[in-house]
Design a protein around this nucleic acid. Structure first.
Lengths: 337, 337
DNA sequence: CCGCCGAATGTAACTAGTTACACAGCTTGT
DNA sequence: ACAAGCTGTGTAACTAGTTACATTCGGCGG
């Protein structure tokens, strides 16, 4: 039998030896095949096939100085909003022949900094982070490595990284204004955890100008289940609100379910509004009024920005994406009494 | 001013020169700091800081022969089932100090093969694919590169790659049996696209043994919206079925919404069952009876399998994960008529 | 018939790290 | 007092590609 010394992967020189050519020629066959004579090419190709040669990505990377990888740090994948956003990023990066490495942080800045380091360790050429609240260690890393990095989901022209996102406070304001316009003055607000979550914080900030409405607040985990629980809390309150403003559609979905279960009419008895505009929200029953956040556009824009930065050195400026009210059936005029 | 020739990233030799030591010493400071004298270490550290030296990932990779990256090919990120599964994979890989590159295929085998090539090009050490239907090109690639690769979401002990997944036909069978047990004999089946989707195909296969029930089929895109549409189609049929079996919870959610909207009682007028057991399904109204697919466990198991294979050369055997009926409120005994 | 040009190929020097081995200098044991 | 042993460091050879430059050979023009 032929010596099956295939214990180790073949390299360029093995191929060159077998084909009786130089390493340069093999490299040429791989990269500029037109510059090689047919006969030589055939011999090299045969050797490549025989040795099952596959060029080493690392060796290529060391020469080109490129890894063609960009890293994204997100709190979780287990939430439609981040999943859609990453899907858009991946698609667009793919058009630039860049690959996406995903790392999840559980919304913990320390984990984020740690994972950012591992992204740098595997050679990421750019970083995408969520929000504008991070560890100093992360900023250090970005600075030290001169790493293109953009922050998303939060527009802030004064942030020291380019931000591509929307006006979270504005989104909150739009939702509140809609309820105020409908005459509601006793409103329950259901929001996710505040620790380390600048998006939620900003949305709450947008609710400061309440006119003469009275707001009460319920904190919940970002899940349908906790949306249900929050609804229970709200319904059992002494002075029941006439509207519920959820800072996330996931929570609103839970609230809607609970209302249904308890036979509370939406929007007759209570109006419900969300923020996000998830794919399912339009088809909920009743369909959910919400503030649309352009996460897909944000993903595309982010991917374009980081790609251009990496490929052409064009540091992007920030980008504010518009949010807009999508009035559907879950909100209505406050009933006279 | 100091010569700001920082046009190019500093490398090991630059640091060595500045610190007046050899490259080996710098490398030691980085990797085995305890083997270096304090004074030397300090000098090197200072030089590293001054030059803002960051070691090249590619150069490390070329020496270790490791990229510490594994690639996952999924049809889409925009579906909770894949997102959850990837989240679990990422978490577990992270424990092995491996990173996850995600590539989406839109369920197209050709795109899959292409993206697999780019994953190899960036040096992925392992591949995770969905299902058991792929292009020959993909198999070639895996074979040529001797790449650890596992197929998921579909258990098939005879497949030439290790498979980690569940019995899709069995899941379909369980759902059908549940409806049969409840006395239903006119059942509508709502399923996703069949082209290239072996999971859906297998689930349908599980519905072959119908007893004396009569099945009708509706194909739909995997979205809540198409679930709604399918429900409309079914409701407007001449001979209305008494139960609807959805091959995916997303579709079932849409069906549930539509029933609500049309005032059709679930489960009084019609029973609805899904497959997947998405996080929201338990809280839908009514709560959705479904077949639980252990996607999180699957993600963990897959990540462990590929990691052990990569790190220790232990090629995993396949793994069958149990599915089970989760009886909730959306199914009930067929009403006498 | 000689020189020039260009195509095809080879040589060797890069890329940026890791590491085997050699060796200097000091301490310790006998 | 001298060998042995340890610590700390340097030299140079690796890893696996790309590529600038040199070389060979053939054809063609003068």
């Amino acid at each position: 039998m032929a010596n099956t010394r295939s214990r180790k992967r073949a390299n360029l020189r093995d191929v060159a030896k077998l084909a009786n050519v130089s390493v340069a020629t093999v490299s040429r066959v791989l990269n500029t095949p037109d510059s090689v004579a047919e006969a030589t090419k055939a011999a090299v190709t045969a050797a490549i096939a025989e040795l099952r040669f596959v060029p080493s990505a690392a060796a290529r990377a060391i020469n080109s100085g490129r890894s063609r990888v960009v890293g994204a740090l997100v709190p979780t994948l287990d939430h439609a909003i981040f999943a859609r956003y990453l899907a858009a990023i991946e698609q667009t990066l793919s058009g630039y022949r860049l690959s996406l490495v995903v790392a999840t942080t559980k919304g913990d800045a320390a984990i984020e900094a740690e994972k950012a380091q591992t992204l740098v360790d595997i050679g990421a050429e750019g970083l995408i982070v969520s929000g504008v609240t991070h560890e100093p260690g992360l900023y250090d890393l970005i600075e030290r490595c001169q790493l293109p990095a953009v922050a998303t989901s939060y527009y802030d022209p004064d942030f020291h990284l380019p931000t591509i996102g929307y006006d979270n406070a504005g989104a909150g304001r739009i939702a509140l204004q809609h309820l105020l316009d409908l005459g509601h003055s006793r409103i329950a607000v259901v929001h996710g955890s505040l620790i380390g979550n600048d998006r939620t914080l900003a949305r709450l900030k947008g609710l400061e100008d309440t006119g003469d409405a009275e707001l009460s607040f319920v904190e919940a985990d970002l899940s349908i289940e906790d949306g249900c629980k929050s609804a229970q809390t709200i319904l059992s309150a002494a002075h029941r609100p006439t509207a519920i403003l959820c800072l996330s559609d996931v929570l609103a979905t839970g609230v809607l379910y609970e209302m249904q279960r308890q036979g509370v009419g939406v929007p007759q008895d209570v109006s419900v509004i969300g923020i996000d505009d998830l794919p399912g929200s339009a088809h909920a029953s009743p369909s959910l009024t919400t503030v649309h956040l352009p996460v897909v556009r944000m993903g595309h824009a982010t991917a374009v920005a980081i790609s251009e930065w990496i490929e052409n050195g064009l540091k992007p400026s920030g980008m504010l994406l518009a949010t807009e009210l999508v009035a559907r059936d879950s909100t209505g005029i406050r009933r006279p009494a």
